[in-house]
């Protein structure tokens, strides 16, 4: 290897710890001992590399970029893990969900048909293969609320503090029986979703809403009434994990936006129910 060839090889050299074991570099480096001009060139080359790398290291990624990437990856993995289930398992899962729905429906005839219908439709929406369809995918809760506000969909602001600090998978604005409604999907630490469906209670013929958390097949579901709105929470996460999210909530209601878009004007003075109690 002559001097020019050694220079070309050493142009690709990074450091001893990364490239020192590579035979092609070992051979070129060995020539430094006997070639003063080559050695001087290599020192200058190393200085250039060090200086350029130091300057480019000034390009810092946004502080929240890693968290955003991980949130999107977790959301994608959850969707794919459901979607990737073999057909036989999907059939079993579907039977479990439908069986749970039927059981729940048969034991809760007190509510109106309208409420039962909403409950069934909402759970069907969130339990769809691959996760529910979202209009906006974002880990930022504020972005989901802005999106829902802009699309005149109801949403709930006074969330439990632990949920406020949690990342979301995104949200969806939709219409159920001519009433605007919304879905917000929270990403729990273990990668599972917690879904929140919000709709004007008038859409349900003001039916009596059962309190506490219920099991519906593989799902845990809880309803809340807030300022004329119905909040439906649904998740496949363990009951204990969900309890941790809700039992600490004691804050007052700060407001529900877009609460009475259609068709009736519901007063915002409707008092809250003691909705954070948990039933097993």
């Amino acid at each position: 290897m002559n001097s020019d060839a050694a220079k070309e090889v050493l142009s690709a050299y990074r450091s001893e710890d990364r490239d020192g074991a590579d035979p092609i570099f070992r051979e070129a480096l060995s020539q430094l001992e006997n070639d003063a001009e080559l050695k001087k060139w290599f020192e200058e080359e190393t200085n250039l590399d060090r200086s350029v790398r130091q300057k480019l290291a000034g390009i810092e990624p946004p502080a929240d970029l890693q968290a955003k990437i991980l949130a999107r990856i977790r959301g994608e993995k959850v969707r794919r893990s459901v979607f990737a289930l073999p057909p036989a398992w999907l059939a079993v899962a579907a039977c479990l969900v439908l069986g749970g729905l039927a059981l729940f429906y048969s034991t809760n005839r007190g509510g109106s048909d309208r409420f039962q219908e909403f409950k069934t439709d909402a759970l069907a929406m969130v339990s769809v293969q691959g996760g529910p369809q979202l209009d906006l995918e974002t880990p930022d809760l504020n972005e989901t609320q802005t999106f829902l506000r802009e699309h005149k969909a109801p949403y709930y602001e006074a969330l439990p503090s632990r949920l406020k600090s949690m990342e979301t998978a995104g949200c969806r604005a939709f219409v159920w029986k001519d009433y605007p409604a919304s879905l917000t999907c929270f990403l729990l630490p273990d990668g599972q979703f917690l879904h929140l469906v919000v709709i004007n209670k008038a859409a349900l013929d003001n039916a009596d809403i059962p309190a506490g958390m219920k099991a519906m097949g593989d799902w845990h579901v809880m309803f809340q009434q807030k300022n004329g709105m119905l909040l439906m929470w649904a998740s496949q996460a363990p009951m204990d994990q969900l309890k941790q999210l809700f039992v600490v909530s004691t804050g007052g209601v700060r407001g529900i936006a877009n609460a009475q878009e259609k068709p009736s004007q519901h007063a915002r003075t409707v008092s809250d129910e003691a909705v954070f109690s948990i039933e097993q």
Binding site: P61, P62, L65, K68
Partner: peptide, 26 residues
């Protein structure tokens, strides 16, 4: 991200490109 920034010269585009790349890997 640094590579993306060198290509785009735009922070937002670089962050989006980085996220999208990892999503494709997933």
């Amino acid at each position: 991200y640094r590579f993306a920034f060198a290509l785009t010269r735009n922070e937002t585009q670089a962050a989006d490109l980085t996220q999208e790349t990892f999503l494709i890997l997933t």
